[in-house]
Design a protein around this nucleic acid. Structure first.
Lengths: 243, 243
DNA sequence: TTAAAAAATATTGTACACAAAATAAATAAA
DNA sequence: TTTATTTATTTTGTGTACAATATTTTTTAA
C-alpha cells in the first residue's frame, strides 16, 4: 500500500485550514467523473484501488462511496462492493417523471423570483454550453447542461429542492449513457435559450411548458424497453426455435 | 426500504446469512426514535455511547449517523460530533414548500392509479391513527400520521419520490417539535379521511386541494419568526434601552 | 476436454489503536 | 471573585489488522 502524496492535495489541505474535507474533495472528484460519463455504469469501484489513487485509506473511500450510494449514483452490493449505478428502464422513467414534477414547481418559483442578474447569468451559462459543444468537449458540456437546471433551482431559492434536482440530474446522466439510442445528442442549447426567454418575460406557463417539453424530448431520445434480459432471450431466438 | 423484522432482529441476522444489516437495524431504531420525537432536536449523538447501547463499534454507528445526516435528520459538525437536527425557520418553510410541491404531484399520480384495495388500506391506516390518538399514544400517532403520506407515495408508484417524501415527512416531525405553538395538535384524522374520500371518487383536483390545505394548516400551526437570535436581543431589550 | 470440487487469493466488514481536535477542569493572574 | 491561561480529559478522524465473504485458480473426477 504505497501512499502517493498528491501535491495539489496537500497545499489545498494546508490552505483551507485542515484536511477538514479530504473526503469532500474525493467525493467531488468521483461525482464529476460519473457525471461527465468518464466512469461507465457498472464499473467496479474497488476500495483499495480508489484509496491508492487518492492517497487515503479505505475508511475515507468508504465514506465517499456510501454518500454516492445514498445519492443513487453508486450501488453497493453487500460483501460484493460498490459499482457505478446501472439504472433499470423503470428507474429511468421514475427519475424523468420526478424531474418533470419537481422542475415544474421549481420553474414557477424561479420565474417569480428571477432577477435581471439571474437572467444574465443563465445566458452566460448557455453561452459556455454552446462553446463546449462547438469545441467538441462532450464531457464538459454534459456537466454544464446539468448545471443549467441546478441554477434554476438556486434561483427558486429552495435548497432542499435544489439538492433533489442535483441528484436527479446526475442520475439522468447515467440514464442517458445507458439508454440513448444512436448518437442523437441533439443540442439542447436552443431549448435552454427559449426557456430563458420565457423566464425573462416572466411567462410562467410558457416557461413550464418549454421545460416539460425539454424533459419529454430527453426521455424520447431513450430506448427504454420493458422486457428484461430473460424475456429477451426468447424474443431474440423466436425465429430459430420456429415457435 | 425497511425490510427488517423488528422483533426477530437477531434471528433474522442469523437466518439471512449474516449480520448483513446490523447497521440497518440500528438505523431503523434511531430513525424511529427521532420520528416519534423521543430524541429532541439538538441532542448530542455520541458515537461511543451509541456503540455501547447497540453493542457495536463506532465504525457502525458512524455509518448510520452519516446516513441520517444525508437525510438531514442529523447534523454532523466536523470534529464536534453528530446532533439531532434543529431546523431553522427558513429550513422549515423550505421543507413545507417542497412537500406541497411534491405531494401535489404524487397525489395526482395516486388518484389515477389507486385501486380499491389501496383505498381500503388507507382507511384502515386512518382507523389506527384515530385509535392511537384516543389512546393518547402520541409517539405512535406521529409515526402513523407520516405513514399515511408515505402510503400515498407508494400508491403513486414512484420510489424516488417516495424516498423524498419519507425524508420530508421526518424532517417535518422535527420542525413540529421545534416550532408548534401551543399544544394545538388538532387531530388531522378528519383531514386524512376527507382526502381518502376524494381519492376514492378519483376527484383529482379536490384531493390535491385538500392535501394542500392540510399542509398549509400544518404550517400555520407553526411559529416561524424571521428574526435571528442576534436581532432578537435588541428587540427583546428595546424597552429597557429606551431606544 | 469438460465439469465439479477444493484450495488459494483477493475484497469487503468490523473492531481497534492512535493522532488530532475540542471540551472540561485546574491553576494562575488581575 | 473574575478572567485568562494552561493542563487534563474526552471525543472525533483516520489508518490498520483481522475476520468473514466472494472470487479466482487449481486440482480432481468423469
Amino acid at each position: 500500500m504505497s501512499r502517493t502524496a498528491p501535491t495539489a492535495a496537500l497545499s489545498l489541505v494546508h490552505k483551507i485550514g485542515k484536511k477538514a474535507q479530504q473526503n469532500d474533495r474525493i467525493y467531488e472528484e468521483m461525482f464529476t467523473a460519473i457525471l461527465e460519463q468518464r466512469l461507465a455504469p457498472g464499473t467496479k469501484l474497488s476500495e483499495d484501488t480508489l484509496g491508492e489513487i487518492f492517497g487515503v485509506s479505505r475508511t475515507i473511500v468508504r465514506t465517499v462511496l456510501q454518500r454516492l450510494a445514498h445519492e443513487r449514483i453508486v450501488r453497493i452490493h453487500p460483501n460484493r462492493g460498490a459499482f457505478v449505478s446501472e439504472p433499470t428502464p423503470d428507474e429511468a422513467r421514475e427519475v424523468l417523471q420526478a424531474r418533470r414534477l419537481i422542475e415544474e414547481g421549481v420553474m414557477r418559483l424561479a420565474v417569480a423570483r428571477r432577477t435581471v442578474t439571474d437572467v444574465k447569468n443563465l445566458r452566460a451559462m448557455v453561452g459556455q454550453e454552446q462553446e463546449s459543444l462547438d469545441k467538441g468537449a462532450h464531457e464538459t458540456w454534459v456537466r454544464q447542461s446539468g448545471d443549467f437546471h441546478l441554477k434554476l433551482a438556486a434561483i427558486a431559492g429552495n435548497q432542499t429542492l435544489a439538492a433533489y434536482i442535483k441528484e436527479l440530474v446526475s442520475r439522468t446522466s447515467l440514464i442517458i449513457v445507458q439508454y440513448q439510442k444512436g448518437s442523437s445528442s441533439s443540442c439542447s442549447c436552443d431549448e435552454h435559450t427559449d426557456i430563458i426567454d420565457a423566464i425573462e418575460a416572466q411567462d410562467e406557463d410558457k416557461a413550464v411548458d418549454l421545460m416539460l417539453r425539454h424533459l419529454q424530448a430527453c426521455e424520447e431520445q431513450l430506448n427504454l424497453k420493458t422486457e428484461d434480459a430473460a424475456t429477451d432471450l426468447y424474443a431474440v431466438f423466436s425465429k430459430i426455435s420456429g415457435k
